[in-house]
């Protein structure tokens, strides 16, 4: 990202991204005042946050046009990040399976 960049075009993009991020922030706060149900709010909130994060990563951090080795490193990190995120999920699934088994055991036949 250091050679042959049309810097004026880049700067225009940066301002557009900045505008989009501000709009995204207002949209998240606006969605909060809609007072929708928790699952819907979670979906909307995390969706907007992911879009904003992608904008930052792609344009401010230049990931839209990066070298192969960095993509590889990040792909590896994403794989392990998913394993890490599976951790609470696995625990709660295990809890539910456990409760289910307990209920079954106590049910009179």
């Amino acid at each position: 990202m250091s050679e042959h960049v049309d810097i004026d075009k880049q700067v225009r993009i940066y301002f557009l991204v900045f505008g989009a991020l501000m709009v995204g922030t207002l949209a998240t706060v606006g969605a909060y005042y809609l007072e929708v149900s928790v699952p819907v709010a979670l979906t909307i909130g995390l969706f907007i946050a992911s879009v904003k994060a992608s904008l930052v990563a792609c344009f401010f951090m230049h990931l839209i046009d990066e070298k192969k080795i960095i993509y590889w490193t990040l792909a590896l990190t994403v794989a392990f990040f998913i394993a890490l995120m599976a951790l609470p999920l696995l625990t709660s699934v295990a809890d539910q399976v456990g409760e289910f088994a307990e209920v079954e055991a106590h049910e009179p036949h």
Partner: peptide, 8 residues
Amino acid sequence: ITGMGSVM
């Protein structure tokens, strides 16, 4: 042995 269940 933490009781995390047979699936895990």
